[in-house]
Design a protein around this nucleic acid. Structure first.
Length: 478
RNA sequence: CGGGAAGUAGCGCAGCUUGGUAGCGCGCCACGUUCGGGACGUGGAGGCCGGGGGUUCAAGUCCCCCCUUCCCGACCA
């Protein structure tokens, strides 16, 4: 049996998570408080996520820009709710060039302020709109508690910032980008997500509506996987961004912003990983197929490696990312375990017996099954096998979510359900912050999502019994 | 920022009670035997014992101060 040295997921999920991240070579803690060093294997996954998002941004007419890391403090203070929301978690630079600065510089926690300050100069007429810009960058938020990938002082993300002439257009953009996130989560990362709205208490500071996608991790806790904000005219008003509309009237621009971060590397690990380690969706696996040659003598080694090279060349020719693990210092069993830990979707074993029979042994990381395939079969079937793993991971995660989504129509069922079973709990809500708070106090869970289109739940508020006006989905979350 | 725990070799830890030559396992390097599910033997390299101050003939060990990390909360992508 394999000895991974990992805690069992069931017994110690946080411990399991931390060990997987470390042992699989994804990331480690940085030197200063709450920071993270992303290692090659982790960063390579991020590059695939970046590419998937960026392709979709371009396809929907967006362009990339870059704004400064430092934001003059006064700029940040113009939107009241925004200041209040971010004030506790700002990093502030007070010295530069060996001297105290006249005005402190805030390290961006997000860039709405500096961007809308700049948009003021870029927008005069409705003909200048929309502005559909995105930037890839790092941001800093001084969180009290950090966890690799999920919450670190500094993290990498993209933040889109668009300006529109009408409320309708901005709302459409907000919803469109939320769906881009849904698509990347589900089709690329194989994490099924719930789309919807946040309650007022969970909204982004300064937003009119915050639309999240929420995924369920294997410990039955939710993870916010991306958010798209409808900012209304709040930032345009705070930063005085006006334009002349088609009717010749001055109007404030309408705004959206949306972000997707390196936290989703952690999400991918927590949504699919098992007791042997990572299970990476083929779409983001830096190595999709690893070939482990097996041999005893130099003679066998030669023949096996020729067969391995041939298989690699053929697979690479089909656009598949293949690696041959020809390290002499490790035996095959060690390599099997190591690549499983790293999450490689397919392992091909080629030994003397296989060379003789012109075949390979092909093992799937999805369920551990092995099959023997002829050399030509393995080439022709590989895209299908990888696609099967991609879809299989999504299906497993979807089934898991279905099993762990429950209805609750009274306080006792709701709170004990959340506390004892975990997962998503759906119930009526009267929209009062008091009822929301009561559940949080009893469970530490929050409303993760309300339906995108507000709908009558047809049941009473699960907390107070008054008529329900929203259908709320609750869960404990990261 | 509260409540706990911990900082000793790259990683995981023992040693501290009762002060007296710096240890173990894994990993690393060399050679040999191994190789279809985490191999073994022999030899070797590697330490400002988190930092600063004290007590003492003598401090990893005792005392004081500081720093950092982890876990549990509150804050959050």
């Amino acid at each position: 049996m394999a000895k991974t040295g990992l805690p069992k997921q069931e017994e110690d999920f946080p411990g399991w998570y931390q060990e997987v991240v470390k042992q699989a070579g994804m990331a480690e803690h940085g030197m200063s408080k709450g920071t993270m060093i992303i290692k090659p294997h982790g960063y390579a996954v991020w590059e695939f996520i970046q590419r998937a998002l960026d392709d979709r941004f371009k396809a929907t007419g967006h362009e990339n820009v870059y704004f400064p890391l430092f934001i003059p403090q006064h700029l940040l203070q113009k939107e009241a709710e925004h200041v209040e929301g971010f004030a506790p978690e700002l990093a502030v630079v007070t010295h530069g060039g060996g001297e105290e600065l006249e005005e402190p510089l805030v390290v961006r926690p997000t860039s709405e302020t500096i961007i809308w300050h700049t948009y003021k100069n870029w927008i005069q007429s409705y003909r200048d709109l929309p502005l559909l810009y995105n930037q890839w960058c790092n941001v800093v938020r001084w969180e009290k508690r950090s966890r690799l990938f999920l919450r670190t002082t500094e993290f990498l993300w993209q933040e889109g910032h668009t300006a529109h002439a009408t409320s309708e257009e901005a709302w459409e953009e907000t919803v469109r980008m939320l769906d881009v996130y849904r698509e990347v989560s589900e089709d690329v990362l194989a994490i099924p997500v719930l789309k919807g709205r946040k309650s007022a208490s969970e909204r982004f500071p300064g937003a009119v509506e915050t639309l999240p996608i929420e995924g369920l991790m294997r410990d039955r806790k939710a993870l916010q996987c991306g958010t798209s904000h409808f900012l209304g005219q709040n930032f345009a008003k705070a930063y005085d961004v006006t334009f002349l509309n088609e009717n010749g009237e001055q109007d404030h621009a309408w705004a959206t912003s949306w972000g997707f971060s390196t936290r989703m590397i952690g999400g991918t690990i927590m949504a699919h990983g098992d007791d042997r380690g990572l299970r990476l969706p083929p779409a983001v696996a830096p190595v999709q197929v690893v070939i482990v040659p097996i041999y005893r003598s130099d003679d066998e080694r030669g023949g096996v490696l020729v067969a391995a090279d041939k298989a690699k060349a053929a697979l690479s020719g089909n656009g598949i990312r293949v690696k041959i693990d020809d390290r002499d210092q490790h035996r095959p069993g060690f390599k099997f375990s190591e690549w499983e830990l790293k999450g490689v979707p397919i392992r091909i074993e080629i030994g003397p017996r296989d060379v003789e029979a012109d075949q390979v042994v092909c093992a799937s990381r999805l369920d551990g099954t092995k099959q023997t395939l002829s050399s030509s079969q393995v080439i022709s079937q590989m895209p299908k096998l990888l696609d099967g793993i991609q879809k299989g991971l999504l299906k497993e995660a979807l089934d898991f979510r279905t099993e762990n989504t429950h209805e609750a129509n009274d306080f006792e069922t709701l709170t004990s359900g959340i506390n004892e079973a975990g997962g998503f709990w759906v119930g009526g809500w009267c929209e009062s912050p008091e009822c929301e708070e009561k559940v949080s106090a009893a469970t530490s869970a929050t409303i993760r999502v309300l339906p995108l289109e507000k709908e009558d739940p047809g049941v009473a508020c699960a907390v107070c019994g008054q008529p329900g006006t929203e259908r709320a989905t609750w869960a404990k979350a990261y």
